[in-house]
Amino acid sequence: MRNKKQQIEETIINAIKTKLLNYKPETKSMPFHYRLLGKDRIALYSFIQSLNTTFGVSIFEPVAEKIAASKFSIVKSRFLLETLLEIKHKKLYRK
C-alpha cells in the first residue's frame, strides 16, 4: 500500500513539475480577449486550462491505472468504449 501511495505521489509531482517547466501558451495573439479581460487574466486562464488537460492525461489516467492494477488482472488506458460497442453491434446485426 505504501509503495502504491509513493508511486501515485511521484506521478502527481512529476506531472506538475513537467508542466511548470515546459508550459508554453498555445495562443499568443488574442487582441480582443486582451482588451476585454486583460493580458494577465488571459494568461492565467490559459495556464489553468493547460493544467486541467495535464491533470486528465498525466495524472488522473496513470493514477487510475495504478489503483486498478491492484484489483483487476487487465488494466488498459485510453480504451475506446466505442470499439466495443461497434463490435457488439456488428455481431447483433450481421445475421
Rank of each mutant, 00 (worst) to 15 (best):
M1W: 08
M1K: 06
R2M: 08
R2T: 13
N3I: 11
N3W: 10
N3P: 08
Q6S: 15
E9D: 14
T11C: 15
I13K: 06
I16L: 13
I16F: 11
I16H: 02
I16P: 00
K17D: 15
K17Y: 08
K17M: 11
T18D: 15
L20K: 13
L20H: 07
L20A: 07
L20Q: 09
L21Y: 11
L21R: 13
N22D: 14
Y23P: 01
K24N: 06
E26S: 04
T27V: 12
T27L: 08
M30D: 07
M30L: 08
F32M: 09
H33S: 09
Y34H: 14
Y34C: 05
L36E: 15
L36K: 13
L37E: 08
L37K: 06
G38P: 00
K39I: 12
I42P: 01
I42H: 02
L44I: 04
S46F: 02
S46A: 15
S46D: 15
S46T: 10
F47S: 07
F47K: 07
I48N: 02
Q49Y: 06
Q49C: 07
T53F: 08
T54P: 01
F55G: 02
G56P: 01
V57D: 04
V57P: 01
S58I: 00
F60D: 12
E61A: 05
P62Y: 00
V63W: 03
V63C: 07
V63D: 05
K66Y: 01
K66M: 13
I67S: 04
A68C: 11
A68W: 00
A69R: 10
A69K: 12
S70W: 02
K71F: 14
K71N: 13
K71G: 03
F72K: 07
F72S: 05
S73I: 04
V75F: 04
K76F: 07
K76V: 11
K76W: 09
S77R: 14
R78Y: 11
F79E: 12
L80I: 06
L80R: 12
L80K: 08
L81F: 08
T83Q: 10
T83K: 13
L84E: 15
L84V: 11
L85K: 07
E86I: 04
E86D: 06
I87D: 15
K88I: 13
H89W: 12
K90H: 11
K90R: 10
K91I: 15
L92S: 09
Y93S: 09
